[in-house]
Design a binder for these strands. Structure first.
Lengths: 114, 114
DNA sequence: TGTAATACCTATTCATTCAAGGTATTGTGA
DNA sequence: TCACAATACCTTGAATGAATAGGTATTACA
């Protein structure tokens, strides 16, 4: 069963990819492992999520890729474009808005009457 | 255009509804306004999101409803069931996990080398 | 020699958010 | 009293995009 639209995950792969690639060039397989690390194991995204996401981001101009042979194997490295940086800024802002909205809601005192 | 899967919104309507209804019974139209308030205007959900979400939650046993005539008009009030409370606990936990994962990722120092 | 790890990829599923509509009643103010 | 806003419920249709489950090929290693 393809558990789609899993709670709270929409937009997350894109945000994390852009964020990581804003720091340095990386390749897909590396990003998969990296996401587990930088989120302290809280978020784990499979290759079936990462590769399509990378392709979509490149297609719409947020990323540029270059193939780089490393030890007989070929890696595809991705880096941010100016558009990608803008997109990252926008997404970060969106995230913070939602995040603080939910935090406010969850922190509302539970029934002072009880 | 049905701007679907907007960044970071998956699961959010469900979480907010359960959270609000955990405090007191409310009806749909009231919840729409309430969500804007408790999220400090950060999140606004239309009736086209709220009503289907309420129906789905009731269908799967997280909510129970009762019709209550108020001034000639009929309101449908919703309240949490035990299952709904369990669901809320689970969703809150999920949220906190994702939230802290992303926070960790976003806070990672930007390229100490630069 | 065979299995794990690396490294890339695609097809399909499907849940759900959203915009845009619709109905009917009550309140209001001109 | 006429019209319009607000209240209160609802459904349809479209689009998205994350996840699962596959697949290929190479290198490392035991």
């Amino acid at each position: 069963m393809a558990q789609s639209n899993p709670p709270f995950m929409s937009g997350v792969p894109e945000l994390l990819l852009l964020r990581l690639l804003d720091q340095r060039e990386m390749y897909g397989y590396e990003l998969v492992r990296s996401i587990r690390n930088v989120t302290d194991e809280a978020i784990s995204l499979g290759e079936g999520v990462i590769y399509p996401a990378l392709h979509a981001l490149e297609r719409n101009g947020a990323l540029k890729s270059r193939r780089k042979p490393v030890g007989g194997r070929t890696r595809v490295y991705y880096g941010l474009t100016a558009k990608g940086r803008k997109r990252l800024a926008r997404l970060s802002e969106d995230w913070r808005r939602i995040q603080s909205g939910i935090e406010t809601a969850l922190e509302t005192p539970v029934n002072a009457s009880a």
